[in-house]
């Protein structure tokens, strides 16, 4: 059937159509969703916040590039996942942190947690959270020095950073807490990106509308936190609006690689995150437990997936018929 006049054709396996999405597009969407919170961080905490975010992004991307080069693997800098890790890590740092620690955390997140396990899709815990915990354990005093919003406007801001406590620390110490409005718009001490609930919610809505994330994990996480707080006789609204719960539930726990892929698994995982968070908050010696909760549930993810595996369509019928 040789015929010189006929054109050469490509052959490939079906399907011959694609939805047009790519990993890079998804990661860009996550970056867009992070913009409102990043802007609020810049407004509240000034140039130090901007510096930390840029440093984290830069060092994460550079580490990713170097790792892939050294390992002689296909370059993955272009998928923007390292940039997302950079922003998320910066969001989890106190605004006045020495930039060197931020760079150290970024290198740890990408080189140790992500690339040593095989790169994107292979890490067993969230790189940004693992780096935060690494910094928290290594440099506890630096990692828990909080400053009030707009501290950079005061006359001698550089030499005399005004220290404050996070609402949760205040609550743990028994002192008063900021008003609900202040909590909602982020006018209180805390990590760079976790204070402004409003901005995080806007980003979350964007991710939901673009179908980047599904509502199961955030809803179950936040719902469990609220219910547990209620059951323990505490104010659920304060627990939802303060600390890293919003940031964790919307951006960290929903990380594709480290959360279950099936719906039942996601629900189980979300509830687990909420329970561990509240256990640490209520009974632990630490004021905050979101990062530990998510990392612990990350580790359980493969087991959750196995336990909640849905049976294929039609298999129940076969079992009951026998």
């Amino acid at each position: 059937m040789e015929n010189q006049n006929l054109p050469k054709l490509s052959v490939s396996s079906s399907p011959h159509a694609h939805c047009g999405e790519s990993t890079a597009i998804i990661m860009q969407d996550v970056l867009i969703a992070l913009v409102p919170a990043a802007l609020m961080a810049a407004v509240y905490f000034g140039w130090r916040a901007v510096l930390l975010m840029l440093l984290c992004i830069g060092s994460c991307v550079l580490t990713e590039y170097v790792c892939r080069r050294v390992m002689k693997r296909p370059q993955t800098v272009g998928d923007f996942s390292a940039a997302v890790t950079g922003v998320l890590l910066a969001f989890n740092l106190p605004p006045t942190l020495n930039p060197i620690y931020a760079v150290l955390g970024s290198v740890f997140a990408i080189a140790v947690v992500k690339q040593m396990f095989g790169g994107i899709g292979m890490n067993f815990v969230n790189p940004a959270l693992a780096a935060r915990i690494f910094l928290l354990i290594s440099f506890p005093s630096h990692m828990s020095r909080w400053s009030i919003p707009f501290f950079y406007l005061s006359a001698n801001a550089d030499t005399d950073i005004v220290s404050t406590a996070t609402p949760l620390a205040q609550a743990a110490a028994g002192s008063g807490r900021p008003s609900y409005t202040d909590l909602f718009i982020g006018l209180h001490g805390g990590c760079l990106g976790e204070t402004c609930t409003l901005a995080l919610l806007i980003g979350g809505m964007y991710l939901l509308l673009r179908r980047i994330i599904t509502p199961e994990v955030p809803l179950c996480f936040l719902g469990t936190v609220a219910l547990t707080a209620l059951a323990a006789g505490q104010n659920p609204l304060v627990h939802l609006l303060s600390g890293g719960v919003m940031l964790g539930a919307i951006f960290m726990a929903t990380d594709y690689t480290t959360c279950p892929v099936n719906r039942a698994g996601k629900i189980f995982y979300g509830v687990g995150c909420g329970l561990i968070t509240m256990t640490i908050r209520l009974f632990g010696s630490l004021p905050e437990g979101v990062s530990y909760a998510i990392v612990l549930m990350n580790i359980l993810t493969p087991h959750i997936e196995t336990l909640t595996q849905s049976s294929p369509f039609g298999s129940e019928v076969r079992n009951s018929g026998k």
Binding site: T23, G118, I120, G121, Y256, T257, V261, N262
Partner: peptide, 16 residues
Amino acid sequence: TDCIRCGRCVSACPML
């Protein structure tokens, strides 16, 4: 490219 475990194949599969 590498699988990112987004789970879209799982929710798209008509046979579960």
